[in-house]
Amino acid sequence: MMAAGAALALALWLLLPPAGVRGAGPPPIQDGEFTFLLPAGRKQCFYQSAPANASLETEYQVIGGAGLDVDFTLESPQGVLLVSESRKADGVHTVEPTEAGDYRLCFDNSFSTISEKLVFFELIFDSLQEDEEVEGWAEAVEPEEMLDVKMEDIKESIETMRTRLERSIQMLTLLRAFEARDRNLQEGNLERVNFWSAVNVAVLLLVAVLQVCTLKRFFQDKRPVPT
């Protein structure tokens, strides 16, 4: 119980902005990723602040635990159910445009009474406000005369590089999640192989002992010796 509470508190600290920022203006856009352990028969929810008129991409993946499945729901700041999935191993969902407020993401493992699940999820924002600010800056500094290299071309190149770098970071994060899931599967298979190998060795030794005892009985002469 204490470990689950600590994990939930850490998740909220990572995902939610400081309390003093709420009154100063719209919440900052922050991409985030988190891996947590979901106990059997439990449900955990996380809240993420989002600005208005942006794009929010949510991706999750179960990387450990029997069955590799979990229930997932996503609710808007108004309490509207946007996504509801049952016993899925992974999923990718995009909300566009977003509403200003706190989105609620819930992972439910109440259908499992024994197995806990290791869940990874990632939140990716793409704000339209940043593009508007860049365009305004370009219009303010661009000279009237024609230049060999236009500011518009430079801005487009920088934006393309930024988008590709962000996509590369996302792909690397997903590859780490896939690697963690595969490693957990391999470790689980190794434990099962070692267990059943030990059982087979024990059975072979028991059969060998029984065979030796049986052969000894065949060669024992229990007839009385006349005197």
Score class of each variant (00 low, 15 high):
S110D: 12
F125Q: 04
I124R: 11
G136P: 06
D108A: 12
A138F: 03
K117G: 05
E132H: 09
L118A: 06
E133Y: 02
L123I: 07
E116K: 09
E133W: 01
I114E: 10
S110Y: 14
L128C: 06
A138M: 10
G136H: 15
A140T: 13
E139Y: 02
E122A: 15
S112P: 05
G136E: 15
S127W: 01
K117H: 13
Q129S: 12
S127G: 11
K117D: 04
D131H: 01
E135W: 13
E116I: 01
E139G: 01
L105M: 13
S115A: 14
D131N: 01
E135Y: 14
C106V: 08
C106Q: 02
L123C: 09
A140R: 08
S110I: 11
S115W: 10
D108L: 07
C106I: 06
F107V: 02
C106Y: 06
E135R: 15
F121Q: 02
D131P: 00
S127N: 11
I114G: 00
F125T: 01
S115P: 07
D126N: 14
F120A: 09
Q129F: 12
C106G: 09
S127F: 04
N109I: 06
D108C: 11
E130Q: 03
S112T: 05
L128Q: 07
E122L: 14
L118S: 10
E130A: 03
F111W: 11
L128P: 02
D131W: 00
E132L: 12
F107M: 06
I114D: 12
K117P: 07
L128E: 15
F111K: 04
E122V: 12
A138V: 12
E132C: 02
F107C: 05
S115I: 02
I124A: 07
A140W: 14
D126L: 10
E116P: 08
W137R: 11
L105H: 06
T113A: 14
F107E: 00
S127L: 03
A138R: 13
E135D: 14
S110W: 11
D108N: 15
I114Y: 06
V119E: 10
W137P: 00
L128A: 12
W137G: 03
L128G: 13
V119A: 03
F120T: 04
F120R: 03
S110L: 14
V134A: 11
L105T: 02
T113F: 11
F107L: 07
A140V: 12
D131E: 13
S115K: 02
E132I: 05
E116S: 14
I124C: 09
E130N: 02
N109D: 09
T113G: 09
D131I: 00
E122Q: 15
E135S: 13
F125V: 04
E133D: 12
A138C: 10
F120E: 09
S112A: 11
F111Q: 07
L123G: 09
V134L: 13
